[in-house]
């Protein structure tokens, strides 16, 4: 099925008669991508479910004021990223736990989750990712799983391409070291 262009979605959304149709098109195009982006950050399905709904409610309320100087999907990704990081920070403050312990909590959620059916290597990769600082994990996920370009990640995170490349390389090295430590070689 041919995917609808963002420009068409925006044009339809600007007309009150076709606004609902435009939003349905937008959901069809982006809801899964945004869900997975959030899910990889917050790990738990129920948390991701709440957050993805919040993100699209925000999109619905603010799409009128969206300016076409950035791409629509990078704008939605930015909202999703901010919501997820705010959620993780709130979780950290609520439980009064340091960041590494939040990672431990997320790792426990991963193991106990009924919505994770990855094999041993997939589990190890997720555990390795949870040892990374939040921003490195975010960048690795967007590059590795979402397959976004550095320029797109730069627009979403507001970080320079050079810094993103450095973060990604450091993340890969750390993951490699973690895997070696677990006797997993590629």
């Amino acid at each position: 099925m041919k995917q609808v262009e963002d420009s068409e979605i925006l044009e339809k959304f600007s007309n009150t008669k076709t606004r609902n149709e435009a939003f349905n098109l937008l959901l069809n195009k982006y809801q899964q991508k945004i869900y997975w982006h959030i899910r990889r950050l917050v790990i738990d399905h129920d948390d991701a479910d709440d957050l993805v709904q919040d993100v699209f409610v925000k999109v619905w309320k603010n799409l009128d004021s969206f300016r076409s100087d950035s791409q629509l999907y990078t704008w939605i990704y930015r909202i999703a990223t901010n919501e997820s990081i705010t959620f993780l920070n709130k979780k950290k403050q609520r439980n009064n736990t340091p960041l590494d312990e939040v990672s431990d909590e997320l790792a426990e959620t991963l193991v106990a989750s009924s919505y994770f059916n990855g094999d041993k290597i997939q589990l190890k990769l997720q555990q390795a990712l949870l040892t990374l600082p939040e921003k490195q994990r975010l960048i690795f996920n967007m590059k590795y799983f979402d397959e976004l370009k550095y320029e797109e990640i730069s627009e979403i995170t507001g970080t320079s391409v050079g810094a993103l490349k450095a973060s990604f390389h450091i993340a890969v090295k750390k993951i490699e070291a973690f895997m070696l430590n677990e006797d997993i070689t590629f």
């Binding site: 990889r40 994770f116 059916n117 990855g118 997939q122 799983f145 590629f186």
Partner: peptide
Amino acid sequence: SAEKFKSVIQNDGHTV
């Protein structure tokens, strides 16, 4: 290294 990971691990193992 990233390419090597990718050849073995294509997805993250999360389900819905």
